[in-house]
Design a protein around this nucleic acid. Structure first.
Lengths: 253, 253
DNA sequence: TACTTCATTTCATATTGTGAAACTGATTCG
DNA sequence: CGAATCAGTTTCACAATATGAAATGAAGTA
């Protein structure tokens, strides 16, 4: 017996992972029934696993008995050396960009079909875009995500499209697959990507990729601003910062 | 058969949790043998669970086959409503403190015997304390941690001391338990705590607790600065910010 | 080459997790 | 107000699942 997802050695762990994923997709606490439906697990099984996760603080239950992500998840995450290298190198550049434009600068990393924000520099300014560290966005609605998709080539984009069905987050920017393919590929070509209110209405981004000594993508760097404040002139600065960071990471183009 | 730690319904999940904890205690990749020893699990079992976690990206293996935290952990964590309330309310105050003193301001939350940094405001300044979101510190070496310990009363402090054995991180500040008890209790009494290079040499903190409408501890707020820059005059500002945030969270003292 | 040490695989075994069904306790509805 | 519905939880007999001892493989050391 098996599910639709790729599977591994220990069943319970795969199932626990499914459940954690399902829970963290919701911003608000979720009911058992829904989690059971989302994951395709028997309610009884869902309940048992969930409560085992609760005992380990991976999941928490609110006063109504609904489930939400637990505190333990926060603490476990990567201060892995790998990420810290990028982080340490990138931060000064991020802070410089932040100060120059007074906008939010983010570092992201890919994991599966999403990008995860793992470091940020917030400007001193009344209104600014607030990205939460640890939050996620699907590849096709994030500037950095488009670059990642594009650098995988046409096949990767199509496979992604098929897998995810390209859910629209705000306006339906990509009604057609060729459109997305086009945009991703040209983004890679020109060395940067834009996000025009695709992840969230009112927010525009400029994204570039960072490379390490192996030539692989180390992370993504992006600037997020209220769309009406974002200026095209900023692009070259972001691109330049990206190149400098990559160089410091040992990348030689 | 059972371990020394408190246990729950599903064995594998408890064991996986043990392993994740063990891994994330190390900054560098760790060998199987060590994880096996740390957790008391049979090497074979350790290997099996570890690889199941790898298949789910909770753990990653570097080129030498050593284990480190996986990317999946980053993305899962709490943008749970609960935390976001505190975050949203506290951020403006944090940014104000950051701007006034040009030092790093952190939000922390307790989980088990550690505090976890989950939001920050970094100043525009060449040198400043850099706390990584998601990183942890044991209660007894963090300003906020001492307040948390103190608010639990004498019994809680003693139980914590016995459980953890109060490992020294820098200088051996607390050679004796009464000393720690003393400091925690007076900290609570005066409404703030200090950390004098106890977590890291050269870094000094000022911490206060934030309370919500239920009267419980919602989070901790702290200022971290190079020890020689930190001024006692700042304390009242941090305390004041803490009170204002608590008030906005619905706390009525 | 022989000796250690650690990682991985195998495999017989019973322990462990499974899910159908029964139970509980809300909430809705006639 | 009682019947019906539905979500959550507990129980339990069963077999699939995870277990760990031992064997094998891979690497490093003397």
């Amino acid at each position: 017996m098996s599910s639709l997802k790729p599977d591994s050695r220990i069943q319970v762990i795969d199932r626990a992972a499914l459940l954690l994923d399902a829970i963290s997709r919701y911003t608000n606490p979720v009911k058992l029934k829904i989690l059971s439906a989302d994951t395709g697990l028997h309610p009884s099984t869902t309940h048992r696993i969930l409560h085992s996760l609760i005992d380990n603080s991976f999941v928490a239950q609110d006063s109504n008995g609904q489930y939400r992500p637990g505190k333990r998840l926060l603490g476990l995450s990567s201060h892995s050396q790998e990420n810290n290298d990028v982080r340490a190198v990138a931060l000064p550049y991020m802070e410089r960009l932040r100060d120059r434009f007074s906008e939010t600068i983010n570092l992201t990393i890919r994991e599966g079909d999403v990008v995860i924000y793992f470091e940020k520099a917030n400007p001193k300014r009344m209104m600014h875009v607030q990205q939460i560290v640890g939050s996620r966005a699907p590849l096709h609605v994030a500037a950095v995500g488009k670059l990642i998709l594009g650098s995988g080539g046409k096949a990767a984009i199509e496979s992604y499209a098929q897998r995810t069905n390209l859910p629209a987050y705000t306006r339906n920017t990509f009604s057609s697959l060729p459109e997305l393919t086009q945009e991703c590929l040209t983004s890679v070509q020109q060395g940067f990507a834009l996000d025009n209110e695709e992840a969230e209405i009112g927010v525009g981004c400029i994204g570039v990729l960072l490379y390490d000594r192996s030539g692989g993508v180390a992370a993504g760097l992006s600037l997020s601003a209220p769309i009406e404040r974002r200026r095209n002139e900023w692009i070259e600065d972001v691109v330049k910062a990206g190149k400098e960071i990559s160089a410091k990471l040992g990348y030689s183009a």
